[in-house]
Each structure stands twice: as structure tokens, then as C-alpha cells.
């Protein structure tokens, strides 16, 4: 075979595989950076940054993700079309998030203004810890509640498996449990 074609174009050195092989130092540096960044988010999560904490965490996550994509997944050295596919995907995710959030945000503002709010409000049921729904469908809420009671502590598989049996119930000391959770 004289000539070889790829993508409809002749290929000069068809049999050569030219893949980029990164030196060990690159991989070591990247994993080092990833660990450092992980430590950073972890540490920052103990500080009280308030609403900024989401932004900080996301920025760090994006940096980490970019490192993985660029060096571990070789996108930096790869066919540019793969980069295009990847970034294109991110853009479509952005569209999906953007429009949906936009609607839900602007809808809430409107609902609040017109006092036609139908979503469950946290404050009204505060403290009851009940998994209940919107306020204007009491029957359904009653149904859900009944279902929860019926499932009670007895189901879910977690009990038997962890060896506590079904005996432990509401009577257990809250504080003790809260502590045990962490």
C-alpha cells in the first residue's frame, strides 16, 4: 500500500505513533499539587467563610480538575478536537444549569412578591424534623407521614447489619447519638 489516508487526507508517516510521554517529574508535581489543594479545601472548610466557602471550594475543585484533565488525561498534548469536545460539554452543562437556575431563581422572587409561595417553608415546620411536603396539600402530607411512621425504625437494612438490632428507638439519648455520628 503506497499511501495512507486519515480523515480524508494523506498521512505522511502513518506507522509512527507519536504520543507525548510526560516525564515522571510532571506526574509527581501534579499529584503533589493535588494533595496540597485537597489539604487546602479541607482546612478551609473548618474556617467560617460563610457564603464565600462555596466559591472557594469550587475554584479549588476547578483547579484540581484542570490539573487532572491536562496532565493525567493528557488533554494538553492531545488532539485539539478532544479539547473541543471536552470544553463543549462543559458549555452545555453550563447552559443546562444556567437556564434552569435562572428560572427557579426568578420564579421564587416572583412568588415571594405575590405571596403565592407554594413550596414547603423551613420555618413553619421547624423542629419537627418531619419529611413533609407543601402546606397546601394536607392529605398528602398525612399520607407521607403515615408512611414514615409505618417504616419507622424497623426497616432499611442498616439495623440488623450493624448489629444493633431493632431495639433502639426514640428513647435513646439524642446527645449520645449526635456525638456518635462524628
Amino acid at each position: 500500500m503506497a499511501k495512507v489516508f486519515l480523515n480524508g487526507q494523506p498521512v505522511e508517516h502513518a506507522h509512527e505513533v507519536h504520543e507525548h510521554i510526560s516525564p515522571m517529574s510532571t506526574y509527581n508535581a501534579v499529584i503533589g499539587a493535588l494533595f496540597v489543594l485537597t489539604g487546602l479545601t479541607f482546612a478551609v472548610s473548618f474556617a467560617d467563610l460563610g457564603p464565600a466557602s462555596l466559591t472557594v471550594a469550587m475554584v479549588v475543585a476547578f483547579i484540581k480538575a484542570s490539573l487532572v484533565v491536562a496532565y493525567f488525561m493528557h488533554l494538553k498534548y492531545d488532539d485539539k478536537y478532544h479539547l473541543f469536545v471536552f470544553l463543549g460539554t462543559i458549555i452545555f452543562v453550563g447552559i443546562f444549569f444556567g437556564f434552569t437556575m435562572f428560572d427557579l431563581k426568578s420564579r421564587d422572587a416572583l412568588n415571594d412578591e405575590q405571596e403565592t409561595f407554594v413550596r414547603w417553608k423551613e420555618m413553619e415546620n421547624a423542629g419537627k424534623g418531619l419529611a413533609v411536603g407543601v402546606d397546601n396539600v394536607p392529605e398528602r402530607r398525612a399520607k407521607v407521614l403515615a408512611e414514615i411512621e409505618a417504616h419507622g425504625g424497623g426497616h432499611g437494612g442498616g439495623h440488623g447489619e450493624a448489629g444493633h438490632g431493632g431495639g433502639e428507638h426514640k428513647t435513646d439519648a439524642k446527645a449520645e447519638h449526635k456525638a456518635a455520628a462524628h
Binding site: 428560572d103 427557579l104 413550596r119 419529611a131 411536603g133 396539600v137 398528602r140 402530607r141 399520607k143 407521607v144
Partner: peptide, 16 residues
């Protein structure tokens, strides 16, 4: 309870 209003969700979210 993501989509079902009785569980605290938003049915319009499903439509999105």
C-alpha cells in the same frame, strides 16, 4: 423529594 411537591420537591424542575 426532588420532583414530588408532596415531598418538598419541584415538579417544574422535572419539566426542565
Amino acid at each position: 423529594g426532588i420532583f414530588d411537591p408532596a415531598m418538598g420537591g419541584d415538579p417544574v424542575l422535572f419539566q426542565h
